[in-house]
Design a protein around this nucleic acid. Structure first.
Lengths: 343, 343
DNA sequence: TTGTCTCTCGTGACCGGTAAAGAGGACGGT
DNA sequence: ACCGTCCTCTTTACCGGTCACGAGAGACAA
């Protein structure tokens, strides 16, 4: 009654059944499934017929068991759901990863690691042999997860320079430092002399480096000294930081925020306080994401080649998997400044 | 040289090795690993010691092979990367799913199915026995994917009423119709008499139902007849639709958009055209997402209990997995109207 | 002491594939 | 006619678990 034509209890057909159907042995079927050449055209056809007559699909568990490969790589995002699905950054990365993995037969699978419970599950998942490798993104501070994974002999690549250097894990990152420097520099060139910054979380390299870039740009100039307020890349934190900055110094005429979201928050607060952007205060963000295009005025922002970062991540991981002893160096991709109306 | 204390070539320890270490048989170790009661406390301790002395983790592939369970469920999102990671809706859903699955030992794994290539991969992944079940979200039109999966005997639950009814698959959805009706009704009550709508994609039930709700609210009233422009839930489409609407009728004084993103786009276009929100034109969105909180003025929006939808999805799927012959009915969750400043 | 019952544990047959080694023709050369 | 080769296919031993079955050891009553 359920599915006519297929006996319900039969379950998925096996190699054995296909072999019987085609009148050959298991081994032969295995060979055609895996595309080995040493099969005569006759049997090749016979087997193929049998395969799609029965609708055969190889059982991955059985295959993994002997080959020790799963053809799956894991993307671990160390953020809460809200953030992952709120920041377009991740979309670009995933697309880049997908593009590159599409050339291989590796399948990408995504898992969040925002809470301890989730982290623990991710670790179990990886350690019990369900993945061939993992790319970790948005790591905070000294997250033990990457270490645990490499200890379990799982190839790992990271996004964003790990703060605890010396880990020796391959990573790809945008050139945050020079991106931030360029942005701040731009503010200076267009005439800002009291330039503040809203930083990202200081337990991530992206946060630290962007702050360093800001400082580097201002080091030998008189463009505002320590006008620094801390945020966490999120919108709300940008608003908070901007309020704080205005309280500390209401002559601020330029703001470099370490993320578009924070910059957008800052712009909103500036408007609340009657400041006009860019006339009174110029604002530059970081990420060149959708939100930058949709603020009013449209936001000048530092772009990072997110998609290419995804590509490179995939490439690094693949070489790590194929040649476990290779240690591909880090990849640093250039950033650029996209000029719009806010600065 | 690599990892001291563990011989590199050893690989992961196996049941057999743990058994040897503890001086018992494979079967016994298996019993303690799976928490069977029929083990004496003595051997229990011995085995446990051996387990974490060797750092043993059961090999899932081997286990799956015999149990036919993978303890993994798949979340398939039929959208492109940009959209998935741009719309907060998905974040809530994922969180809800995760919460509920956290009570079980099922692991959630996410995969995108925005392109044909991806869809094909998802299908392969599911059919070769790597998942115990799947939840599909954001299905468009008559997507063959769900059908293919159930044909492969994989428990499936859907988000959003499937357009082709009669599929008989369990699903959860928000009460889009009455949500849209309430929103439109609200616009009428506050005095709008030329109420337009920007629809979602008409190949999704959410799009169709929200349009139907709009129509229902206006059916016996003189509040604007066919002021309908179509969008795809995305921001850009909202802008386009709003321009089109203004061209067709510049006396519009109320807009119900089927998504927050489209409403935000509409508000921007309205401002471009010198209309003030809500004074000249009142706007209501749908989703009550972050973007609704961050427009200027803040947007009145229909809320759907995204997180609870995730919970229910997980629950449905679990019962489908545990009792394959049960056919849990659909779950429709109520929507509400969140009043802010745009209407 | 012996028989029975219960509790704990070992044994061995699978699960569905892969890969290396070996078997059996067909073919060509001498 | 015989032998060596090459090509194709079958055989067989795993991979690392689970589970049904049965054996051995105490405990306790007869």
């Amino acid at each position: 009654m359920t599915s006519p034509g297929r006996t319900r209890a039969a379950g998925r057909p096996t190699l054995e059944q296909v072999a019987a159907e085609a009148g050959v042995s298991r081994g032969t079927v295995s060979r055609v499934v895996n595309g080995s050449l040493e099969v005569s055209t006759n049997t090749l056809h016979a087997v193929r017929e049998a395969i799609d007559k029965l609708g055969y699909v190889p059982n991955q568990a059985a295959r993994n068991l002997v080959t020790k490969r799963t053809d799956t790589v894991l993307l671990v995002v160390s953020e809460a759901e809200e953030r992952v699905f709120g920041e377009p950054f991740f979309g670009g990365l995933v697309r880049g990863l997908g593009e590159e993995l599409g050339r291989t037969n590796l399948q990408l699978s995504l898992m969040l690691a925002g809470s301890d419970r989730q982290r623990e599950r991710v670790e179990r998942f990886a350690r019990d042999g369900r993945v061939d490798g993992a790319v970790l993104i948005s790591l905070h501070g000294a997250d033990p997860l990457p270490g645990k994974l490499v200890a379990a002999d799982i190839p790992v690549v990271l996004t964003g320079r790990p703060l605890s250097s010396g880990s020796g894990m391959p990573f790809v990152d945008a050139d945050n430092l020079s991106g931030a420097e360029t942005a701040t520099d731009h503010l200076f060139r267009i005439g800002c002399r009291r330039i503040a910054t809203i930083t990202g979380p200081q337990d991530m390299a992206a946060g630290v480096d962007r702050l360093a870039g800001y400082r580097a740009a201002l080091e030998f100039r008189r463009g505002g000294a320590g006008l620094v307020a801390h945020g966490d890349f999120g919108r709300a934190s940008g608003e908070r930081a901007m309020r704080e900055l205005l309280e500390r110094d209401d002559t601020i005429d330029g703001v470099f925020a370490a993320s578009d979201l924070m910059a957008a928050g800052a712009m909103r607060v500036l408007r609340e306080h009657g400041r006009r952007v860019p006339h009174d205060v110029a604002v530059v963000g970081f990420d060149d994401s959708d939100v930058a295009r949709n603020t009013d005025p449209a936001m000048t922002s530092v772009s990072q080649p997110v998609r290419r970062m995804g590509n490179e991540l995939a490439r690094l991981l693949v070489t790590r998997i194929e040649q476990p002893d290779s240690v591909p160096g880090p990849v640093i991709l250039p950033t650029g400044l996209v000029h719009r109306d806010s600065a």
